[in-house]
């Protein structure tokens, strides 16, 4: 254990770039690939994940004194499942078409490794304020790559952004592959390589 636990601000910033859940830790990949064929579903997914992450982090941080080591994963999972059920019902009540479109991926937030890892690493050890800061930072860090991939796939695949037409059909032929499953893999692979290349270049410059 380090001499001092990270403060709230450090946790917040940490989530956005230095420990970005998608680029750095490769956590929660299923929704990153599955719901990014359009900006709208991607952002709904990011918001749903954020709400579950924040609520779960608060609850786990509040009860961290009572957690027994061998039962903690079970407690995490049940807390997360409860909040996912709430979020799922909320989405079905207020944005029904979007909830239908997202389908099984909303309940699949339960097994999103990102949330369990944040509960384990941060919320079960630190104060509520730090846990909230961490959850908000991580949520932003999760929404960013989702937005990047969704922008590329929606622009190239259907020529729109958030459903608004951007590229005219006449001079931009639609890349159908981008909104189909293979497009998700390809865009994420290229994006990961770009982020890796950028990190290496910056490290090399700093070393000079």
């Amino acid at each position: 254990m380090a001499a001092s636990e990270p403060t709230a601000l450090e946790r917040f910033i940490n989530g956005i770039l230095p420990e970005n859940p998608v680029f750095r830790q490769l956590l929660g990949m299923c929704p990153v690939l599955a719901v990014t064929n359009g900006m709208k579903p991607a952002m709904t997914m990011a918001a749903a994940t954020a709400s579950v992450l924040i609520c779960a982090n608060i609850i786990i941080s509040l009860i961290r004194g009572f957690l027994k080591p061998h039962l903690r994963i079970l407690v995490f999972t049940l807390t997360i499942a409860t909040f996912v059920t709430i979020t799922d019902r909320f989405l079905a009540a207020y944005v029904y078409t979007m909830s239908k479109q997202l389908g099984p991926y909303v309940p699949l937030i339960i097994v999103n490794c990102l949330i369990i890892s944040r509960c384990e690493i941060c919320a079960s050890k630190q104060r509520v304020s730090v846990a909230i800061a961490d959850a908000v930072g991580m949520s932003i860090g999760y929404a960013l790559p989702l937005a990047c991939i969704a922008t590329v796939r929606e622009l190239l695949g259907s020529g729109t952004w958030f459903g608004c037409p951007v590229l005219a059909e006449s001079w931009w032929p639609r890349w159908g592959i981008m909104v189909l499953p293979p497009g998700g893999f390809l865009v994420l692979g290229i994006l990961l390589a770009t982020s890796e290349w950028y990190t290496h270049r910056r490290a090399a410059r700093a070393g000079m």
Partner: peptide, 23 residues
């Protein structure tokens, strides 16, 4: 493999090509 693609990058590109084949 080009250096930035090593690890998960190339694996995802391969998965994309496999997904096309499975289509």
């Amino acid at each position: 493999v080009p250096k930035p693609f090593q690890g998960p990058g190339i694996a995802l590109v391969i998965a994309g090509i496999m997904a096309m084949a499975f289509m």
